[in-house]
């Protein structure tokens, strides 16, 4: 056994008071390798028994995008523009990452109650695990969307280099929302259903199947509703992904500002909630 001197020893002190924010962040930082490891294992274990593996998580939003593109462009009427298919697919890829991840992140603390109730590790890792495990799926589906865009004649843009920034933004957004929701879910099991309802509403309140302005044969949103759609936290990510892949997105600046604002708000809420409840929430698991 290794012997450690007193100076090397970590000491933990627990009182009824809240966890200071710097301790909270230091703990997360110290356990960053655990996050990587658990995300990797989460990712592997999810697809291990499925023969198509990761392809499922990539192909489902693609398929959804294709179906929607066909239905809306041919059956409902309107534009028959080739640009509509990649437009919807890019939007769907970004959206399905956001919605799936927030859904699984928001139940993450309760779902891992068996471990969380017995072993301490920073609870903030839990919502970050599905967010990180879903990143490869997001990257691959965005790349496939890019290929489809190229095939349909969108042309290659240098903005593609922004793709990592898109992924980082999406990740931070879902981690902060997931963190708040997962802690709230410990205290009220209604949260899961609220999330389901919200993702349904926010899907239609995001520029995924329609455009913020008429362009390339797409149907555009009435101007009176536009401000609400831009305020949707998902809009910034969807538009940013679009900008990176196709070199153009309407109202990019404003939607990014909104998404950034939401992210900061949720991150602050996360710090407040976790410093207050991290060490007592287990009593409710």
């Amino acid at each position: 056994m290794t012997s450690r001197t007193a100076a090397e020893r970590e000491v933990f002190e627990l009182t009824g008071q809240r966890t200071p924010v710097h301790v909270l962040l230091r703990d997360v930082f110290r356990h960053r390798d655990l996050l990587v490891m658990m995300a990797r294992h989460d990712y592997r274990s999810r697809y291990r028994s499925a023969s198509l593996g990761l392809m499922w998580s990539v192909s489902l939003p693609l398929l959804q995008g294709v179906v929607i593109a066909i239905v809306f462009s041919h059956l409902v009427g309107g534009g028959r523009a080739k640009a509509y298919v990649p437009y919807v697919i890019v939007g769907m890829s970004a959206w399905s990452f956001l919605s799936q991840t927030v859904t699984s992140a928001s139940t993450s603390i309760v779902d891992s109650g068996a471990i969380a109730g017995r072993i301490y590790f920073p609870r903030l890792l839990l919502p970050a695990i599905p967010a990180s495990a879903n990143v490869p799926g997001l990257v691959i589906s965005l790349l496939i969307a890019e290929v489809i865009a190229l095939v349909t004649g969108a042309g290659l843009h240098l903005t593609l280099l922004l793709l990592p920034a898109v992924v980082v933004l999406a990740w931070i957004l879902v981690v902060s929302i997931g963190a708040v929701m997962s802690m709230a879910h410990v205290y009220s099991r209604d949260v899961r259903y609220v999330i389901q309802a919200l993702t349904l509403i926010l899907f239609y309140a995001a520029p995924i199947i329609y455009g913020l302005s008429a362009n390339g044969g797409r149907r555009a949103l009435p101007a009176s509703l536009r401000d609400y759609v831009i305020a949707n936290p998902a809009t910034g990510v969807v538009q940013f992904a679009r900008y990176a892949l196709t070199g153009h997105a309407d109202y990019l600046g404003r939607s990014l500002l909104w998404t950034g604002g939401w992210t900061v708000l949720f991150l602050l809420a996360t710090l407040v909630l976790y410093s207050r409840f991290e060490r007592v929430s287990v009593d409710r698991l």
Binding site: R9, V11, L14, T15, G117, I119, R279, V282
Partner: peptide
């Protein structure tokens, strides 16, 4: 084991 915090008083553990 640090999973839960006390309501009153102080718990101090030295080392891992």
């Amino acid at each position: 084991s640090g999973v839960s915090a006390p309501t009153t008083g102080r718990v101090r553990v030295v080392g891992r």
